[in-house]
Design a binder for these strands. Sequence first.
RNA 1: GCGGAUGUAGCUCAGUUGGUUAGAGCGCUGGUUUGUGGCACCGGAGGCCGUGGGUUCAAGCCCCAUCAUUCGCCCCA
Length: 442
Amino acid sequence: MAQLSTQPYKGARDFYPEDKRIQNYIFSTWRHVVESYGYEQYDAPLLEPLELYAAKSGQEIVSEQTYQFVDRGGRTVAIRPEMTPTVSRMVAARRQELAYPARWYSIPNLWRYERPQKGRLREHWQLNVDMFGVETVDADLELMLISYDIMKAFGANDKMFKIRVNSRRLINIMMAEYLELDVVQSQLMIKLFDKKNKVTPEEFRDQALAIFDQEQAKTGLKKIAALIGAKTMGELPKELLATSAVQDIQALFTLLRERGVTNAVFDITLMRGFDYYTDIVFEVFDTNPENARSLFGGGRYDGLVSLFGVQPVPTVGFGMGDVTIKDFLETHNLMPKPESTTDVYMIVLGNALKGAQKLARELREEGVKVAVDITGRKLDKQIKSAVKMKVPFMLFVGEQELQDEVFTLKDVAKSNEEKLGFGRIVTTIKDYRRRYVDDDDL
RNA sequence: GCGGAUGUAGCUCAGUUGGUUAGAGCGCUGGUUUGUGGCACCGGAGGCCGUGGGUUCAAGCCCCAUCAUUCGCCCCA
């Protein structure tokens, strides 16, 4: 019989305590920002009927990248690969009774069957933030501001990332009316635009030519050059400038500037994969050359809720994965120092265990998190455990200390110690927590 | 689904044109030290060289297969 493997399932991660601390930090930062905008958390099952994704997510996700099985009742079941269809289902179910604008968020784990690679695993957790019920760009603005604030909350500055913005509505006009492409040609051209930064200008030109028919090719390349060459919206071809799609984007950029966001850029090549986006789309992009990649993104998908047979609900949302943001934090050296969630490791000397347990209980009643070493090991072994666990304080408790009610409290990082009574121990630890750790919802 | 790279101690890796008993650093562990970790010194444990086949007098090293990890591609949150 083969030896059992200790490895986690391919593309999925074990979270040891030191890893879970990091994940908790990311989750807690997310929650802080979105809750500060009044978003409330929801959740839903890991499993959904497969048809939910067949409807709108895009073909490949369903056929190739979904974990699926047939349950004992013969139902075809999928492990959720994304949250958007689920939340749309939930909104549709209570379409009439919800209070709008509905501001919701969740942090689900999602599964996709694909080859793992940098920044993309089979299981990841994703912050999903959505606003339902507002059709003006003020909703798009709010979601982008939240994205921006999250990046700031992680310690990023404006130079580390940029926000790319485009519009599906504009893309459709661009393809169908400006370039005069049919549906099939449009899809090919959208894919080509999407990978513009990955191919050489020559390859781009040749592939564009291959999409046009002979008649279109005469003027097509010039038109594309005019599009790509536009660094600001104002440089767009006149035919497009007059459209309401462009005017909406311009209004959005004005609002962003008013709110102090200066690293947002219009990018006509931004496409985003999902079919369900209908209007403005945006993407937060890492500007570091070593990690030059899309970090996360979102946009408006006004049509999804109505798939469930109810009147449409205008919706804007984005999704942000834990794997990519962790890579970003590591690339930019923004990862906080890992430290235990425990405040004090109690080192017990001689026959003091009973007294130490009583003291620990009293400390807990004051809100201090205490781990007691109950092993009876030699002093240095106990200290080593505390250091390895990265607990910030050690408290030495022996028979003499219990009798005097004065204990030695050691600050591990500073390596200095003080003899303190109960009250001072509590305040010292709480001061430390207030200064260095923001753990109110860990 | 396609292509590249890599699998040797818990971790990071070295290992000569194939040659006898497979190495280092860190970590772990015991001691110097029965109430103070990180430093120092002295000991110790720990390897089916990913797995299976093949070539050879002889394989960690060469060949084939397979599994795993990883980086890209396709695709995309």
